[in-house]
Amino acid sequence: MIVTRGLTKTYGRVTAVDGVGLDVHAGDRYGLLGPNGSGKTTLVRMLLGLVFATRGEIEVLGLPVPRRVRDVLPSVGAMVEGPGAYPHLSGRANLTLFDAAGPGGGRRDRRRRVDEALDRVGLAGIDRRPVRAYSLGMRQRLGLAAALLRRPRLLILDEPTNGLDPRGIREIRDLLTELNTDGTTVFLSSHLLGEIEALCTRVGVMDRGRLVLQDDLATLRAPTGRVLVGTPDTDRAVALLDGRVERSDGGTLTVRHPDPAALNAELVAAGVRVSAVAAERRSLEQVVLDATTTSADRVEAA
């Protein structure tokens, strides 16, 4: 779906994107994670042909960008860095204009398309108020509706849940999952770890212009070979598991063991009471922290 090779963008002496090799497969829910200023937006803009790369190649939907970008974009729905709408027009009028501006949208069923898109993002009941009077969340939904107008094969969304309340975030997440199930590939960028963890099947991590990590979420979060055991009888458990306990923290032990079920059976058999047992997985946060060096907006003394 999206492949980039050695993608680099420099603004003057600043390198915004540095040798990125993105690889998004069809059917992915791909999350591009990175702090503000890590080059996510520039990368997204390059994918859409808004910004031209300094070096490197981009392929979206199998076609080179920016050379064939006009053949690519009709099948792509996009939201870049916040929604954009004409403030003096209503949401519906905005969508109608955007629909009319692009190719491939017949005039006859324009109304139906617009209504459908509004319905999908939960704005079916909007009135004739101008967008100027919308809340940030409503604008965000409107932007998403604009991206959905053409039933795209690929959605490229930059920070899609900005300004939404928790319920709104949940709704959008469900919508994206539903679209993805129907065959739409979703590529989204966010600086919110939890959001990506909750939605995505594949993760890329940007750090100061570089793609430092790119893998399936399942792989990243594979069991670490350790089991977390909660027990009131810590001393007995430590004695029993002699040497396999790596850490004891209050009532929780971290045990090197491949199989939680077997461990549980072993402990229970020995008469150790077990209040909780679970395979330890690395949290995405830990993965990201391991992959990145320092906060991007931190300014160190020279």
Binding site: L48, L50, L73, V80, G84, G102
Partner: peptide, 12 residues
């Protein structure tokens, strides 16, 4: 106003 990029990705 932020609408230019949305027109261009329409694509126009």
């Amino acid at each position: 106003a932020g609408t230019l990029r949305y027109l261009l990705v329409r694509p126009v």
